[in-house]
Amino acid sequence: MDKIQQLGRHTLDRFSAVGRATYLLIGALFGGRPNLVKGFPLFVKQLYVVGVLSLVIILVSGLFIGMVLALQGYTVLIDYGAEDSLGPMVSLALLRELGPVVTALLFAGRAGSALTAEIGLMKATEQLSSLEMMAVDPLRRVVAPRFWAGVVSMPLLALLFSSVGILGGHIVGVEWLGVDHGSFWSIMQASVDFKDDIMNGVIKSLVFAFVCTWIALFRGYDAVPTSEGISTATTQTVVQSSLAVLGLDFVLTALMFGN
């Protein structure tokens, strides 16, 4: 009987969390009149914190993943004399899958955890309450700029990740392993489709950005305002974002490239 009770309580807790998260999102996006004059500088600042400061980890990871892809791909392709296909292999793998997914995972670890910790700490130190008491809506003032910054920056980061990855593939494949420079680029150009490959990658990335940023903001806003609560919330952000990204990636891939 206890087990059933626990299950019921657990389920109810989950559903109420989903409800609170939705409330947060709606409040941040639609609550009150948007004020562009005041909101835009806040958005730009968050764009810097969330996007620009994530650049290093994204670019370095992208470079190395592209290089490893080229190295691994080359050893397989050379057996069939198909090393000219290295270009499309690296670029398609990056644009369709690795760019959006790895960027989202890195984003959750780098920017998502920081967002959760920041907002959780603002809650613990009563900064959110004091905003409310000053008649300033924390959802609009604190949550909304961070949300938009996340949604805008992640697709851009993913595109940069893929671009740098392709360069990494070029360095290893062409400069080091001796694949023909011309065929590397021309076959790549011929086989990558703007709409099917690049845009689908961007759409994936947008979906991941939405989910990751939402989870990070909600976990921070909903954190128990103690040091332990904030550490749990930060961990939850990384774990839940990562799982959500991997799960959604499968669904999106099946929808986009399924047949």
Partner: peptide, 8 residues
């Protein structure tokens, strides 16, 4: 207006 315990 409210003065919070921690200052906030």
């Amino acid at each position: 207006s409210m003065l919070f315990q921690s200052g906030a």
